[in-house]
Design a protein around this nucleic acid. Sequence first.
DNA 1: CGTTTTTCCGTAAACGTTTACGACAACATA
DNA 2: TATGTTGTCGTAAACGTTTACGGAAAAACG
Lengths: 341, 341
Amino acid sequence: MASSIYDLARHLNISIGTVSRALNGRADVNADTRQRVLDAAAKLNYSPNQSGRSLRRGSTHSIAFMLQPHPGDQQYGEPFFIPFLTGLQAKLAERGLDLIVVMGAPGDYQQERLRRVVETRRADAVVLAWTRREDERIDYLTRVGFPFATLGRSRSGGKPYPSLDLDFEKAGADAVDRLVARGHRRIAAIRPSLNLNFGYLFLAGYRKALRRHGIEVDPELIASGFINEAGGYEVTPRVMNSRNPPTAIIFNNDAMALGGCKALAEMGIRPGHDMAVIVIVDTPLCRYFSPALTAFRPPLEPMGRRLAEMLLASIPAYAGEEGPRTIREVWPLELIARDSD
Amino acid sequence: MASSIYDLARHLNISIGTVSRALNGRADVNADTRQRVLDAAAKLNYSPNQSGRSLRRGSTHSIAFMLQPHPGDQQYGEPFFIPFLTGLQAKLAERGLDLIVVMGAPGDYQQERLRRVVETRRADAVVLAWTRREDERIDYLTRVGFPFATLGRSRSGGKPYPSLDLDFEKAGADAVDRLVARGHRRIAAIRPSLNLNFGYLFLAGYRKALRRHGIEVDPELIASGFINEAGGYEVTPRVMNSRNPPTAIIFNNDAMALGGCKALAEMGIRPGHDMAVIVIVDTPLCRYFSPALTAFRPPLEPMGRRLAEMLLASIPAYAGEEGPRTIREVWPLELIARDSD
DNA sequence: CGTTTTTCCGTAAACGTTTACGACAACATA
DNA sequence: TATGTTGTCGTAAACGTTTACGGAAAAACG
């Protein structure tokens, strides 16, 4: 069925060694025989057995991305990740590497699956997303010395590792600046409850900017909920029912914003008229919502490409000439002004 | 670094054969030595090298799912797939199998990536989604005899293969029935333009139901666009500008519905008041949109589990006792009545 | 005590690659 | 002619498993 290197060798009456060398483009093989090998490979529809190759080479030629469904009934996905993965995959494919996405079971926060990937050596490196303030995955990977890179920062991990993050702190501050410039003084912030690092960063920027404007930070205007529509829906009334309700809300996430707007609508409050709304991470939802939501857009696809570069550069076996040699990068978020604030 | 079966053998002063047998739970090994092997494995943190194992076994113990970003700038993902993948992964994990998700490059409709997965034997079987009317992937897989299953039906492929689909035809008809019962006679249908099979099925049900009610099918009320927000936004005005505009619209997809509602809003038309709206495939967006959109909900997570069962049952090496032995199943879609119709 | 059966384990081959090493011929150099 | 150099290729070992086969010891049986 599947042809091996032996089939090629037998077919051409040469040794498997030469076949392998010809296929791998090594120098010590006659140009003529190389061509014959290549032709035979095409004719016999040969393609190398991945298991055999990685066993011998000690590397799998593939990179894993951990995708984690959050707990909760009918949990839907982060549209966020697809363009990022597209960029990641594109850059890896340029280098002949495969991207595999490993699904975790809901709830275990990837620990078990991650161990499995590492221990069975299913990939040469792994890309983590949704980093937490303290992230045991990062500790684990540094401890066992497995190559990795993260989308997002963390305080964990002793040694430096490639990471790419968005400047959520600046985005939080920019959002506040913009709202203050438009006359708002009572600005609420709604962020995810899990200790996802970008939630902290956002809040830090929010606080700093408020103080800079001489506005006291009111704890009643800060709420955290589950990072999905239900979370936003549940938590928004809480800030609205505070003693001194806000005139503007910054949501950390499009899904939370959708839920929040639903809650507002039920209170008869219209975003863009009675309430200013800004979302930190833009998605098509923000653009096509009515009113269109002002949001900060991340360049996800380039981010995927860049993080792949950074990861590859950090692995000796793969290091090539891949742009600048930085190991941590923080990219700006671009504000897309629309109709909701 | 990583301990192999040799390390265990040396550590215990026994042969690698016994170690392997002990680990794999074969009968011909003393209960005592098995325990010692297991203990040593835990102590030395042993876990089998996947490449070595699959090379010898001739199977990878993993199933691939092909995830395809659609072409188009900043294409975001189908939230749809995450719960489905969760179910798939859960069932496969029960059997000790890994699920890997393979990203295609945008545009090539998976052909190239699929070939790569098959030819390098990276997985033992593959799960396809978004099946088309005529699907070359299905033809290819049946031709080369590679095990697969599909989420969705197709007309391709000579031999039967495990497939699980939703009854889009009935959903289309049910939507029409419901709207007619509420007094509508001019009902538009908006569906994806790619020849995705569920678009055809939906439209067939829609047509059939209209005829059953003695309503003439007006081609001007049927439009197809790209299967995302932009598609819905672009195409909805087209049906609204027809000579005899609709009083109700059925969208095939939540993203298209969002775009469509945006277009309606810009024309001053409010879903649920001036226009009835029904969506075929429900997501959290439908529930948290204002007004909440009436939609048909698919049980995605159980579907993932069931399709995994069906796939496994169709592979001799994996067949176990996995529920009913059907090979094609069509599941009903449950209507969730909300405020938009 | 001799024979047969059972239990347990070691040996070695095999899966499909890659690659260090050496062999051989052809050729160049002294 | 003797020696070194270069180009090309075959041989065989190695990667980490699984498993067919056979053998030795122990147990069962007469």
